[in-house]
Design a protein around this nucleic acid. Structure first.
Lengths: 188, 188
DNA sequence: TCACATTTAGATAGATCGGTCTATATAGGA
DNA sequence: TCCTATATAGACCGATCTATCTAAATGTGA
């Protein structure tokens, strides 16, 4: 079955927003690229801001689903590494130019509190997942290992855009392994 | 002596670009906030894009100068830590909402190759400085420690925006110290 | 005082922005 | 077959965008 017009709009807008930026992408370009007409967009979304919010929410749902799938199929004690690897795969496939949530935060910080909060919440949900994984792996539940891993994965986002995925993901794994080894040796 | 009109424009544009984004900030808002007239801007800058480039270059020069000053006054063997601390101070003071170069890369990736390259080069110059500092500190010149530290500092940028400077900088120091300790123990 | 460069004020251009409106067409399900 | 929801085509709105132009005002240094 063909994608609904709404889904076409979401997919097209996501691609254009990611490649060109949010404010630099006009409604006309979105509807032209999606092969629909202006009113179809406004039939499904109340405004451009609502479309942005819908795009970010849909993308975040897919991101979280891929994290959860990786954790669900991880060996016991390996949930943290499974999260790191799933994050790396997402960067390779969908975020070679940096995190769309980071871009949204930059463009909407003083322009839409709703979008900014949505993007920030999406990003911090990775931290929540890391905290749960670190706890279930029996690793250092007190000293903020999850927050340090989160910081590293955030750095991985930008490193992919600047140095390419192979280098960035290898560096990410190296830092993560160092942190895990230190955490294990300090809380045996 | 009062700042020149050109400097007023640069400072005002930098603030507005950082707070509101590049495409969302119009020429009219910049000149109004700077207290000058539109033609004064076009007398000093050929276009909005040229203004963006000048803003990024000026900011990058200040950033590099603060890094170099920190390295110059560092104790022997402490250049790497001095860089990390200088980077942290810059984030606290000037980048509480994330790195302006990262924002520029996001907004100009497919819109101006010149701006994108300028911002990317600005970011990777921190990596160059880290490589030099790691080498002069006698730390692991081969295995990519500088690149791993770079990744961590990039993560620090976003962590400051998401979790606040105190938490983010403490986490950054913790990760850096772990990496330095591991590097020292592996290449004595 | 004169000459020159800068700044001002404001009109103007053409394009694009987000958003609305109406009327027509097209589909599917009851 | 008819009804209803959805999509289309395209005009239209006011606002804003970047950029240019001219003419008057301002200041500064020789």
């Amino acid at each position: 079955m063909p994608a609904s017009k709404r889904d076409q709009l979401l997919a097209t807008a996501e691609r254009l927003f990611y490649e060109q930026g949010f404010h630099a992408t006009g409604i006309d370009r979105i509807v032209a690229a999606a092969g629909v007409v202006r009113m179809t967009l406004y039939n499904h979304f109340a405004s451009k801001e609502a479309l942005v919010a819908a795009v970010l929410e849909a993308r975040h749902e897919r991101f979280i689903a891929s994290l959860d799938a990786a954790v669900a199929s991880a060996s016991p004690g390996e949930e943290t590494r499974a999260l790191v690897e799933a994050h790396g795969r997402w960067l390779e496939r969908y975020s070679p130019q940096g995190c769309i949530m980071a871009k949204a935060m930059g463009e909407f910080a003083e322009h839409s509190a709703e979008i900014h909060a949505l993007a920030a919440a999406a990003k911090t949900e990775l931290l929540t997942r890391l905290e749960a994984a670190v706890a279930r792996d029996g690793l250092d539940p007190h000293v903020g290992l999850a927050r340090r891993l989160f910081l590293v994965l955030e750095g991985s986002n930008m490193a992919v855009a600047l140095l390419g995925a192979p280098t960035a993901l290898a560096d990410t794994r190296a830092v993560v392994e160092t942190l895990l080894a230190t955490a294990r040796s300090e809380t045996p």
